[in-house]
């Protein structure tokens, strides 16, 4: 690898990766995570710590990571994971719970150990205590090396919906009416069954990570991407907080760039030949 790439990777500059479509976003993100883990060279007593999202956007990335594991390129034996959020009050084995999501779409396919995975317990007797201890666990794990996230059309990261403090930590959050409505389709269309609260990491919890990667796909997220990177830091678009993070990479598809300036898109597309080196297979194994 050329030295300037290493430098680009290290200095405090936001990266915007623009790819053709959803599949390429998942693949690029998975390769990036793979390379991060491999370069870290985890082992006994040396764990790579990964923050993880749920939802449709990261699915393609999980599929690719599973492929890398099955092909023997990657092991999760010495990886610790922390999930962003979980609903309050639905059974852990409910098909829409984030426990179920992580189990079915990722954990059951790889060699990660149960004790190294962490998902907030939305059925804990004391929810505040559960949130506080989650922060403690992240600290005890030495902080998060790479936090991967997605965003909502309103620019929320995890369940930090518009108006969330950019200094927020892990806490109980009442869901926005929009989110509840959007979720109704997963709960037999019955509003009474849709969870109205969730536990979520705060914006500051994610900000603490050494590196943040946000995946954004689809035209419906285009405005949120514009607000995230071309306007100022704003608590109504919580993802914009990462403008102040020294190491953030946004990975998006063409559709998600619809609201961006041509200049912005051209600038980052011009950087792709450099950024793509970050996901090339590592030579030494």
């Amino acid at each position: 690898m050329h030295s300037y790439v290493k430098k680009a990777d290290a200095i405090g500059t936001m990266k915007l990766i623009i790819l053709n479509d959803y599949d390429q976003v998942g693949e690029w993100a998975a390769k990036y995570i793979r390379n991060k883990i491999l370069r870290f060279n985890p082992g006994p007593g040396r764990f790579f710590t990964l923050g993880l999202p749920t939802g449709g956007t990261p699915l393609g990335c999980y599929k690719k990571l599973i492929e890398f594991y099955k092909e023997g390129e990657l092991s999760f034996q010495y990886v610790k994971t922390f999930n962003m959020d979980e609903y309050v009050g639905i059974p852990r084995n409910h098909p829409e719970s984030y426990h179920s999501f992580m189990w079915n779409n990722f954990f059951k396919h790889i060699d990660i150990k149960s004790e190294n995975t962490h998902i907030l317990d939305g059925n804990a007797a004391d929810l505040v205590q559960e949130c506080d201890s989650f922060e403690e666990k992240i600290k005890a794990a030495g902080g998060i090396d790479l936090f991967v996230g997605g965003i909502g059309p309103d620019g929320h990261i995890a369940f930090n919906e518009p108006g969330s403090s950019l200094l927020s930590r892990t806490r109980v959050k009442t869901l926005a009416q929009d989110t509840i409505l959007a979720n109704a389709r997963f709960f037999d269309g019955d509003m009474a069954k849709v969870p109205t609260m969730a536990l979520t990491v705060g914006v500051a919890t994610v900000m603490d990570a050494r590196e943040v990667m946000i995946l954004i796909t689809g035209a419906h997220k285009a405005f949120a991407l514009y607000k995230a990177i071309e306007e100022g830091v704003n608590h109504m678009w919580t993802v914009s907080a990462f403008q102040q993070h020294p190491q953030t990479v946004f990975v998006c598809d063409e559709d998600a760039t619809l609201e961006l300036r041509v200049k912005t898109v051209k600038y980052f597309k011009g950087m792709m030949h450099v950024h793509n080196k970050l996901v090339e297979p590592l030579a030494s194994k």
């Binding site: 426990h99 189990w103 059951k108 149960s114």
Partner: peptide
């Protein structure tokens, strides 16, 4: 899918993973 067995019975691996931290 994988099939998990303990004590002659078919086991729910998700329960094992999250509740018992077992493997």
């Amino acid at each position: 899918e994988d099939l998990w067995v303990r004590e002659g019975k078919i086991l729910d691996p998700e329960k094992l993973f999250f509740d018992e931290k077992g493997s």
